[in-house]
Every structure is written in structure tokens, then in C-alpha cells.
């Protein structure tokens, strides 16, 4: 037996480790037969969290204090606009996708404009916009749920050889984000800006343009999530984005990205998203009442942040 201390696993792996533990616990309770179904549903629901989380990650990585609180309202508004643009017609699916992405991109640009022109803290700027976007969504859709075209609904649950395509597409998004962070010029500039804005500016990095891109990307991802989610859940609804305010921040932080910015991990978001969804499944399977389930969710979030070692303190 060696007495050497094992090196601690990297922070971003903790989400996966905790997710694995939840999965094993669920399977031990419900029987091995349900293991596959548990995991595949966690992957599908996790995919939506990953899309919004990846966007939030770009914003959070762009420096201390940067955060996007408008994600839920952008998501809801994009879903309404996109569903209206398609009007339930299969041949307009591409138009709907473009509409969702365009609403997202515009929202991101507005967020950043408010931050720079009015010199507001990002929390306040994105919060004020989120109120306004929410009102737009109210007026656009009202209380009604707008139905997606059947082609989109089919895509959301489309399987090739038993494997769901939609989560696979989201995995590709994650890979693209990870490569962009590590290899692309913009990714390196984003992390540099996040670490020290003055240093990045002295190094000739266009700080504003880099941040603008981060905010636009973030809202565009929310638009993408809206499009997919509306297809999956059967339409745009007023409260469809609500859960993603806290979740988008939680998956980013639990995924190993520093809340202080300058350091990001795209792959870890998957671990955190799986952890969240498997935890929900586990507490459901145990037949725990909803109040206790919420409390345990909160305790686990705090526990995970408290035990995961951080390279840079936030």
C-alpha cells in the first residue's frame, strides 16, 4: 500500500463524479433495468441546460461581475417569435430557427449596449432588459401556448439507431465551445480579458468587441435552446425559461468555471447538467415529497461548491 496522497481530481470532473453517484444510487434503488432510461432522459434534459449554460459560461468567463440574468426572458421571447414565424408549417422550420437565433443575437447586443453606454453593472443591465423582454413575450404570446411544427417536434425526439440526435448535436456544440476557448483567437482573448481587463487592453485586445461577442453568443444560445425546447415540450409557454435562471449559473460554476472570470470549462458543464438532472431523477425515484426534494437540491448545490477545490478564489 502506498501512503502517497492521491492527487485531487480536476474541479470540472466533480460534476461527472457526483452525477455518476446519483445514477448508481438511482439504479440501486429502482433496479438495473431502468438504468439506461434514467441516463438517456438525463442526457436529453441536460442538453437544454448545457446549451444555456455554455452561453452563460462565455459571459461569466469574460470578467468578474459579468453575468446574464436575461437568459430566461430571452429564451421565452425567442420561442414565441420563432413559433409565430413558423406558424406550425414544416417548410418554415429553418426560418423559425433563424428567427430564434436573431432574437437572441439582438438581445445580447442590447444587453451589452446597456452595459457599456449606461456604464451599468451587468447584473442590473441584463436584469432591466429581462423585465422588458418579459413584457414583450407577454404581449407577443399572451397566455396561450404556441405549437411548434411537427417536423421540429419530430427532430427533438429523433433517434438514429436508438441514439437521440438532439443531445448529440448539443455535444457537438460543447466540443465547438471547448475548441473555441482553447484554440481560437477569440477564446484566448476572452480568457485574457476575463483575467485582467487592463492587461488585455494594453496587449491590444479589443476588449469591448470580445465582450460584445460573449454576450451575443450567450443570448443566441438561449435562442437556440428556446427553439429546441419548444420543439421538445410542445410549444412556447410563458414560464418555459424560468428554471434556467438559476440553473444556467449553477451548471457553469459546478462545471469548473470560475465565477471571477478568466477561466472556463465547456466540458464540465455537461457533468454539472447531468448531475442536476440525475439528482432530480434520484429524488423523484426515492419518492421524496417536493419540499424535501427542493431542500436537498439546495443542500447538494452548496455542498458541491463548498467541497470542490478551486484554482482561483472567487
Amino acid at each position: 500500500m502506498t501512503t502517497r496522497r492521491l492527487p485531487l481530481p480536476a474541479p470540472w470532473t466533480y460534476g461527472f463524479l457526483f452525477a455518476l453517484a446519483m445514477w448508481i444510487a438511482t439504479t440501486a434503488y429502482a433496479g438495473i433495468g431502468s438504468a439506461g432510461a434514467t441516463l438517456s432522459s438525463a442526457i436529453v434534459f441536460g442538453a437544454f441546460s448545457v446549451v444555456v449554460g455554455t452561453g452563460q459560461m462565455f459571459v461569466i468567463a469574460s470578467g468578474p461581475g459579468n453575468i446574464d440574468l436575461s437568459i430566461p426572458s430571452v429564451l421565452t421571447l425567442s420561442a414565441y417569435v420563432s413559433m409565430t414565424a413558423m406558424g406550425g408549417r414544416d417548410d418554415l422550420v429553418l426560418v423559425g430557427l433563424l428567427a430564434a437565433l436573431a432574437v437572441g443575437a439582438a438581445a445580447g447586443a442590447l444587453n451589452f449596449l446597456a452595459i457599456t453606454l449606461l456604464r451599468l453593472p451587468p447584473i442590473i443591465a441584463t436584469l432591466a432588459w429581462s423585465f422588458i423582454f418579459q413584457s414583450f413575450a407577454f404581449n407577443f404570446g399572451g397566455e396561450a401556448t404556441l405549437k411548434p411544427p411537427s417536423l421540429l417536434s419530430q427532430f427533438a425526439v429523433w433517434r438514429v439507431a436508438g441514439i437521440q440526435v438532439m443531445p448529440l448535436a448539443v455535444i457537438l456544440v460543447t466540443v465547438a465551445a471547448a475548441v473555441a476557448l482553447r484554440r481560437s483567437v477569440w477564446g484566448r482573448q476572452l480568457l485574457a480579458v476575463g483575467q485582467s481587463e487592463p492587461a488585455a487592453a494594453f496587449a491590444g485586445i479589443p476588449v469591448k468587441r470580445v465582450r460584445l461577442t460573449a454576450y451575443v453568443l450567450c443570448s443566441t444560445m438561449a435562442g437556440l435552446a428556446a427553439f429546441l425546447l419548444a420543439g421538445f415540450t410542445g410549444g412556447a409557454a410563458l414560464n418555459m425559461g424560468d428554471a434556467y435562471l438559476l440553473e444556467s449559473i449553477a451548471v457553469v460554476v459546478l462545471g469548473g468555471t470560475s465565477i471571477a472570470g478568466g477561466q472556463a470549462n465547456a466540458v464540465g458543464i455537461w457533468g454539472a447538467a447531468l448531475f442536476f438532472n440525475l439528482m432530480a431523477t434520484m429524488l423523484n425515484t426515492f419518492g421524496i415529497e417536493v419540499g424535501v426534494r427542493l431542500v436537498l437540491t439546495g443542500v447538494l448545490i452548496i455542498l458541491v461548491v463548498a467541497v470542490v477545490p478551486r484554482g482561483r478564489t472567487g
Binding site: 453575468i67 438559476l246 449559473i249 449553477a250 460554476v253 465565477i259 471571477a260 415529497e289 417536493v290 419540499g291 424535501v292 426534494r293 427542493l294 431542500v295 436537498l296 437540491t297 439546495g298 443542500v299 447538494l300 448545490i301 452548496i302 461548491v305 463548498a306 478564489t313 472567487g314
Partner: peptide, 29 residues
């Protein structure tokens, strides 16, 4: 907790919001 473990308050209070909501639902469903 936030001070001793140097945790970001934004994440801790985010978890806390689930705890408060859960307790509230337990007290008054």
C-alpha cells in the same frame, strides 16, 4: 460559510433559494 470557505455568495445563495422554497413548501404546501 461564505467567509470561511471564501465561496462566491452568488452560488451559495442560489442553492439557498432552493432550500428556502423547499422549507416553505413543507410548511405550507
Amino acid at each position: 460559510l461564505i467567509h470561511t470557505r471564501q465561496l462566491p455568495s452568488i452560488v451559495v445563495t442560489l442553492g439557498l433559494s432552493f432550500i428556502w422554497l423547499g422549507l416553505a413548501v413543507m410548511v405550507l404546501p
